[in-house]
Computed example of a mutant assay.
Amino acid sequence: MSQIEVTADMAPLSELSFSVSGRVSRPPAEVYEAVADPAQLSRYFTTGGAQGRLEPDADVSWDFADFPGRFPVVVIEAKAPERIVIEWAAAPGSNDTGTTRTVFEFAPIDDGARTLVTITESTWRATAGGAKSAFGNCEGWTGMLAALKAWIEHGINLRDGFYK
């Protein structure tokens, strides 16, 4: 039987966060475009369609045919081909800000031939509701990364028929 020792320097968990990463065999500019461009995003991720390019001050909304309901997406930052920061309304009670902030980072690897894509969310409450929202989004973004890779490398839409 093993024991876990709790020491004074182990503060209680006050917030939840996650990062998911994946490597895509395309240059960062191409991968960035596959996320920022609504026509491409609609082909592999937003199954009900995306409207508006991911750039500040754009009128952006996403819809998912498998999880109905178009919702607005606010672009906080877009720095091609390195980073996109977006926000949308959070699930009630899941965090203290009322919004979910998602950061996409596109880092060149293998002399720029491939891209390390990292998606990060944080500030979820360390509660059952916060954990449910954080874990659900972590699952969704992991699926998005797999779908992005399949689409941009092979032209395959992984979401087609996956949820229904």
Rank of each mutant, 00 (worst) to 15 (best):
M1Q: 13
V6N: 10
T7S: 13
A8D: 10
D9Q: 14
D9H: 10
M10C: 10
M10T: 12
P12C: 04
P12T: 12
P12G: 12
P12K: 15
L13I: 14
S14A: 14
E15Q: 13
E15P: 00
L16P: 00
S17I: 00
S17G: 12
F18H: 10
S19V: 12
V20P: 01
R23H: 08
V24L: 12
R26T: 00
P27R: 07
P27W: 06
V31N: 06
Y32T: 08
E33K: 13
A34E: 08
A34K: 00
A34Q: 05
A36D: 02
L41E: 03
L41C: 08
L41M: 14
R43D: 04
R43K: 14
Y44G: 03
F45N: 06
T46G: 06
T46R: 05
G48C: 06
A50G: 02
A50C: 10
Q51G: 06
Q51A: 11
Q51N: 10
R53H: 12
P56H: 04
D57E: 12
D57S: 13
D57F: 07
A58K: 10
V60A: 05
V60W: 01
V60S: 02
S61T: 09
D63Q: 06
F64K: 01
D66V: 05
D66M: 09
F67H: 14
P68W: 04
G69A: 09
R70I: 00
F71N: 07
F71D: 05
F71I: 09
V73F: 01
V75C: 03
V75D: 07
I76K: 09
A78Y: 02
A78K: 06
K79G: 11
P81I: 11
E82I: 02
I84Q: 04
V85N: 02
E87H: 02
A90F: 09
P92T: 03
G93H: 00
S94K: 03
N95K: 07
D96C: 03
D96L: 06
T99A: 10
T99K: 15
T102D: 00
T102H: 08
V103Q: 07
V103R: 03
V103I: 14
E105G: 09
P108G: 03
D110V: 11
D111I: 06
G112F: 09
G112Q: 09
R114E: 13
V117H: 03
V117G: 05
I119E: 00
T120Q: 08
T120H: 13
E121Y: 01
E121G: 09
E121L: 08
T123S: 15
R125L: 14
A126M: 07
T127V: 01
T127H: 04
A128C: 05
A131K: 12
A134T: 05
A134Y: 01
G136C: 02
G136A: 13
N137V: 01
C138L: 15
C138N: 08
G140I: 02
W141L: 04
M144K: 02
M144P: 00
A146M: 11
K149C: 02
A150V: 07
A150I: 07
W151V: 10
I152C: 04
I152F: 03
E153A: 01
H154R: 15
H154V: 10
H154N: 14
G155H: 06
G155C: 02
G155T: 01
I156P: 00
N157L: 07
N157H: 07
N157E: 09
L158N: 08
L158Q: 10
R159M: 15
D160Q: 14
G161Q: 02
F162W: 14
F162R: 15
